[in-house]
Write a protein that binds this DNA or RNA. Structure first.
Lengths: 158, 158
DNA sequence: TCGCATTCAATGCAGTTGCATCTATATAGA
DNA sequence: TCTATATAGATGCAACTGCATTGAATGCGA
């Protein structure tokens, strides 16, 4: 077996390991959590994210664009997720008073109730799959390191 | 606005923050990397994962089940991904010599070549999106913390 | 104010995923 | 051995996603 050698633009091994584990950890924990939600008859986490962002907003309504930005949903995914959630009575679409192209998505009382209900599964699931596996200070460190990966590139990023 | 209070089974805040950032970081970095691959006319990362596992295996072949285990692909997803990769000439399906229910998936020279080609984009992308954002020791710490989330539950995990 | 590029959101279509099921083989038990 | 159960892998179908495009409304510049 020939000796491996690193090319000049290869990433440092530490970065590769961190990246591989990042993907694994996310997949593993997300898989466990989604499975718990499903077995509780609850919708996927993306529904929770939308409901939470709406609840957090001042009057329980946001423009689709803003929802997309906050949840990282693609425009067309948001559009169709809102369709489904509207059919389920969790949100309503309202005409935007100032921009006739746009809308306001408003959370309904049923939507608020469902968010709480999901949290009763989701919260303990986070405790079980994340909280139990890390000390508090470890979780803090992890969060700080992950934030560095999320940061927008300063500038000049072709 | 009423005071929020934590229920007794709510996760510690640190864990929630870590979890939210874990999802964000993974989505963000994966999105960037997949976009680079796509704009280079290359297939998704799952193809790379399969090719890499096959190359790493002793003789360039693995049973589908083993591939599923190593890549975390669901059985039906693996089956269909292998279909596509076989159509693309990257792998071949061989009858398993000892278990007539099973198969061996073998990587072809074209498969090996494609893996290398993907790495020429993927490696630098990891360097750019992960390596550049963390010191080596930070990457090491991150990897160690993430591993704690991946660990199989010891036992009695209903 | 007209024309044109831009933005918001929806949608047709093709590709992918998840679920449940199916076929074939293997293995365990009576 | 004969039957029952378990395992490997494929597949029909419905749901979801991604891409490209559309339609409607906006707003800028001449």
């Amino acid at each position: 077996m020939p000796m491996k050698h690193r090319g000049k633009s290869d990433p440092p091994e530490e970065a590769v390991t961190a990246w591989v584990r990042l993907v694994r950890a996310e997949q593993t924990v997300l898989g466990c959590i989604e499975a718990e939600l499903k077995s509780g008859g609850l919708p996927p986490l993306s529904w929770y994210d939308v409901l939470l962002e709406l609840e957090r907003s001042q009057d329980g309504r946001l423009r689709p664009m803003e929802l997309e930005r906050r949840t990282l949903l693609a425009q067309y995914n948001a559009s169709r997720l809102i369709d489904r959630m509207e059919s389920a009575g969790l949100v309503t679409r309202e005409a935007h008073p100032e921009d006739k192209r746009g809308q306001l998505i408003a959370i309904t009382p049923e939507g608020r109730a469902l968010r709480k209900k999901i949290w009763r599964i989701y919260g303990p699931a986070i405790a079980h799959h994340v909280g139990c596996k890390l000390q508090r200070d470890e979780a803090t460190t992890l969060a700080a390191l992950l934030e560095k990966l999320i940061d927008q590139p300063k500038s000049g990023d072709a």
